[in-house]
Amino acid sequence: MQQENHIKDLQLRIALYEDIKAYNALYLLLFDGLHRFAYTIVKSSEVAEEIVSDAFVKLWQIRNTINKIENLRVYLYVITKNFALNHHAQKNKMQLVQLDHLEVEAVMEFNSPENLYISNEIIRKIQTAIRQLPPQCRIIFQLVKEDGMRYKEVAAILGLSVLTVRNQLAIAVRKVTEALPPQYKTLFQFHDRFSPS
């Protein structure tokens, strides 16, 4: 993938030459995704930004060794997750929690797709459907859809099996489709006509 190679290239420049421009490029490239990811856990844009910043501070501290990291993007998501969970635990004065026990905030402010009119009402319905997904399912949906993550990567970030990610995403897609008005629901009714059961 193009983005993967780009990140590899930046990773190498940071590790070998302490290239601040590459560091900057990496920050700009991954900021939105990491910020959104942190936001789902800490539910504050400012705190989420600080957490992303902490993750990049950490990256800069260990810059000379990062060429050993196999997937830098996954690595940064994992650090971000840990910082965000730490923050959440501290704020709520409790032990570290698992993501699936956490009330997360899904960030799904859809823009209406180009060349296709979807009313605000439908967008609202889709958002509601996403919000009603179990936390872990919501994060998986977000990471795959918004961040374009591979299942393998999502599994590594969340500490799940690829199979779980795959099944959870199928559930999420189904629930989102269920939120669509009847004229769009052929897919949903599909099994009524074709399922042998």
Binding site: D32, H35, R36, S45, F110, P113, K145, E146, V176
Partner: peptide
Amino acid sequence: AIWNARHAGLGV
């Protein structure tokens, strides 16, 4: 189409 509609960002 819905899937590919990218998120608008958090405005940062």
